[in-house]
Write a protein that binds this DNA or RNA. Structure first.
Lengths: 344, 344
DNA sequence: ATCCTCCGAGAAATCGATTACACGTCGATC
DNA sequence: GATCGACGTGTAATCGATTTCTCGGAGGAT
């Protein structure tokens, strides 16, 4: 591979001049032409590693997500990648596999690789490296998940409005005994969703008793299924369930099907996160859609602001209820939701 | 951030010695201890950019995939990432978005970043950069998709066995008029699947007329739906459909549901790619499962072999039929497939 | 005609590591 | 006791770019 010295020789100038031409710093007309010709003839492309060493900028951002195979994170990663790319940055995606130790490991290697900034959707709250990132001065932005004690802006969705709409939706459809499947207490995201849902229901005089709050240690479909089983074995089972994650919803649906129960006749189901196939499920599922792509975009912009030394605040974008048929009302029907339902 | 010079000073040795200690080259006991103590006290971590410049090894692999939001690629990427990581490499994932120009763009930036090797699941066959990668001497391994004219080993799944089993399965269940939804003619993967399916059916005296071969320009669900619509409007519609991609299957199912047709009573459906929720669909879908994780692992190993200068041949791993209920036979029942069906 | 300014371009330092080479020390050998 | 190896360590070159400093020449002002 040709390097800058080869180009300089061929063009009959110094390496400094080549560098200046390529970075648009000063040289003009004649020299410029010669240099560009040499670059073309040799097929020269600057070595980014050398450039990064000198400028202390790698043009690379890091993104750590909880689980690469979770469609929510996938879409988030896709959006982040798109935006980063269009702004001239590469993205290194790290998959924490929902394990804090693996996450820390990944953060370490990203730091060693001198990324310009880091986006983290943290697995758990016990990451010790996050503190070190802040201490090291590497710009950090949290994504989707808050981490208590880490001083960095956070870009995430606000479920208040959507959950308020959901409570109204359920109330209007006559569901009086709702339940929720969440992550274990202590998980900021889970705690918040539970709290907001409970508050929203209360406004309609509907209670959310503790028996109807099912926590799963794993955020997987087996956990969702176990919780649904417990709900159904209750003396007075719920008539509507909100699953706060798409995988847990899968498990819940399996348990319903195994018992021959039908959605929405026997049980209303609402799922957090808009996964493409939910729209094609039978019946199409009512979901709480987070503005995933916007979150990704906003996160990149917030991070770039920090990289460029500008101040950057946290961002909170509203999630919204997308009413389809899994609570008993067809999507096209009279649905107590002000925002437009999406077309199939 | 402390650098190697700071460590050398603090330990009272030269930078060479520090480097040697850290890379386990020679120094012993006493000096070694002093250096390690200094490293600890300063929290020193070597700058990978500088190291990469000197050693011409970045410890980074590139992976280009067709579409980050396609669950098949997601699982593939996850497997590749896992394996690369466990072998001490980082992975930069590039999302081609199924567009050859964006793919070329991405390959260029990866090359500029001096990655040690590249894995490509190519979008289309018209990528001009792939030739340049080979020419540049960067180790290249194709993944899942062949690209004619590119001299590099390819790691992918062999559908012959699975399609042979599928033909037997369909024949045993009395399906006499199968159809297939594929990518347009000229797509190596699509062409091959069509050819193998047709051959396998022929062995059972079943024809696959051209009217029952539906090509979609986009590999999206809209295309799948359009093809299914055309099939159903045929004077003599098929009684079984093989969708060669999970997104196209989604569209096909939508069209069936819109017409009130049921799987498997009115139409058998088989899908290429094992996507988690297929198992939870109603009815659970019969699929052709590619050994995705094994493909990812094999690809990394093949690439590392090339990086280390060893010879590396192409790898072909068998896909297998996972018979569930979408062709009319319950998964637990008598199914003409020698391999074990998976548990739910 | 002389001097000053400005601008383009080259020489060389620099980023932070690795590593070839050279040197000094020590113990072993005859 | 001199010579030779082996070994540990320091010096300095090197990777490929960017950037500062410096210089020489051209052109304008006096």
């Amino acid at each position: 591979m040709a390097n800058i010295k080869d180009v300089a020789e061929r063009a009959g100038v110094s390496v400094a001049t080549v560098s200046r031409v390529l970075n648009g710093h000063s040289p003009v007309a004649e020299t410029r032409e010669r240099v560009l010709a040499a670059v073309r003839e040799l097929g020269y492309r600057p070595n980014n590693v050398a450039r990064a060493l000198r400028t202390a900028r790698t043009g690379t951002l890091g993104l750590i997500i909880g689980d690469l195979t979770n469609p929510f994170f996938t879409e988030l990663a896709d959006a982040v990648e798109d935006e980063a790319r269009s702004l001239g940055y590469s993205l290194v995606i790290g998959n924490a596999g929902e394990r804090p130790d693996q996450q820390d490991d990944y953060i370490r290697t990203l730091l060693d690789r001198q990324i310009d900034g880091l986006l983290v959707s943290s697995a758990g709250t016990g990451s010790t490296m996050l503190g070190e990132v802040v201490a090291s001065g590497t710009p950090l932005v949290l994504l989707d998940r808050i981490v208590p004690g880490v001083d960095a802006p956070c870009v995430r969705a606000d479920g208040r409005e959507a959950l308020t709409d959901l409570a109204a939706h359920l109330a209007a459809l006559g569901r009086r005994r709702p339940a929720i499947i969440v992550a274990p207490a202590g998980t900021p995201t889970g705690d918040e969703r539970l709290r907001l849902f409970r508050t929203a229901l209360a406004a309609h005089g509907i209670a959310l008793p503790d028996a109807c709050v099912g926590a799963t240690p794993d955020l997987q479909h087996t956990g969702g299924r176990a919780v649904m089983r417990a709900f159904l074995d209750l003396p007075e089972p719920p008539d509507a369930v909100l699953a706060t994650d798409n995988l847990m919803a899968l498990g819940a649906m399996d348990e319903l099907r195994a018992r021959g129960l039908r959605i929405p006749e026997d049980m209303a189901l609402v799922v957090y996160d808009e996964v493409p196939w939910f729209r094609h499920a039978d019946p199409p599922l009512t979901v709480i859609a987070q503005p995933t792509r916007e979150l990704g975009r906003a996160a990149v912009h917030t991070l770039l602001a920090r990289i460029e030394g500008r101040e950057a605040a946290s961002v909170l974008l509203p999630a919204r209820l997308v009413a389809r048929s899994s609570c008993g009302e067809p999507a096209g029907g009279r649905v107590p939701v002000p925002r437009p339902a999406d077309a199939v």
